[in-house]
Simulated scan of single mutants.
Amino acid sequence: MTKNNTYYAPSGGMPPQTQLLSDRAIFTEAYAIIPKRVMTDIVTSLLPFWEGMRMWVIARPLSGFAETFSQYIVEVSPGGGSEKPELDNAAEAVLFIVEGEMDVTIEGEKHPMTEGGYAFLPPGCRWTIRNNGDTPVKFHWIRKAYQFVEGIEAPEAFVTNENNIAPIMMPDLDVWSTTRFVNGTDMRHDMHVTIVTFQPGGVIPFDETHVMEHGLYVLEGKAVYHLNGQWVEVEAGDFMWLRAFCPQSCYAGGPGQFRYLLYKDVNRQMPFIRP
């Protein structure tokens, strides 16, 4: 496996008293931006049945905010981990490592994972996690309540690494590609977590407006996004939440490539809000 990508991971800490208060953080009815600068020690959370961990919650189900998923950036110290990480049997998950190494045991089988490592964990799956290394490990943990469909089985667990998967180029474009970890036509999956890469100068050439809710964590580079009629700058370490139908386009100005971890809900009927 050849490592050829970089991944931004938060380091916590606290800014000095001399730092300006204002930042790029914004929360609107259509989108939200959580800049990397605001991911400090005082906004971390803890979970039961974990040792040596803390996490930044960057998305959670909330009226007017993320409705279909939650997303954490988890930091686990050497020797830390959990024998009961997931307490909801209906929850599926994706783990994506941005710094360090860890062991994930799925249904009794241990999988060593390093930077770029990707694990899909179906609902009801028995899994544990342990940092057996000498340095902290940091990873994204994206969770969704799986939408079961009669006649379709839930997908199986798997572990891979981004560097083992060839990106797929957008049709007729050589500056925009997507690393896909599951087949887009596989109806067992009701969420996709992919990595999107733009080369310098690449653009989304129109305001996409579609039903999928998005969570975007910038892994590398910087870009300018056009969100619901407003221009915002984003860089490595920033998180964006985009509501369904939020108009969205971007321009990757360089000097290096612009890459982000992308969540979206897919392949299911639209649920009704019933009185």
Rank of each mutant, 00 (worst) to 15 (best):
T2L: 11
P15D: 09
Q17H: 13
Q19K: 14
Q19Y: 08
L21S: 08
I26F: 00
M39C: 07
S45N: 12
R54Q: 10
V57E: 12
I58P: 07
S63P: 05
G64Y: 07
Q71I: 03
I73D: 04
S77G: 06
S77V: 11
G80M: 08
G81S: 08
S82Y: 06
L87M: 13
D88N: 15
A90Q: 13
A91N: 05
E92R: 01
V94D: 04
E101C: 05
D103S: 11
G108E: 10
H111K: 04
T114P: 00
E115A: 03
P122T: 00
P123N: 02
R126F: 13
T128S: 15
N131D: 05
T135E: 13
Q147P: 00
V149P: 01
E153C: 03
E162D: 09
N164V: 00
M169P: 03
F181P: 02
M187K: 14
H189A: 02
D190A: 09
M191E: 07
H192C: 01
V196D: 14
G201K: 04
G201C: 07
I204P: 04
I204T: 14
P205D: 13
D207M: 08
T209A: 13
H210M: 11
G215I: 05
G221A: 07
H226E: 07
G229E: 07
G229A: 06
Q230H: 11
A236D: 06
M240Q: 11
F245Y: 15
Q248W: 03
D265I: 05
D265S: 11
R268I: 05
R268P: 03
M270S: 14
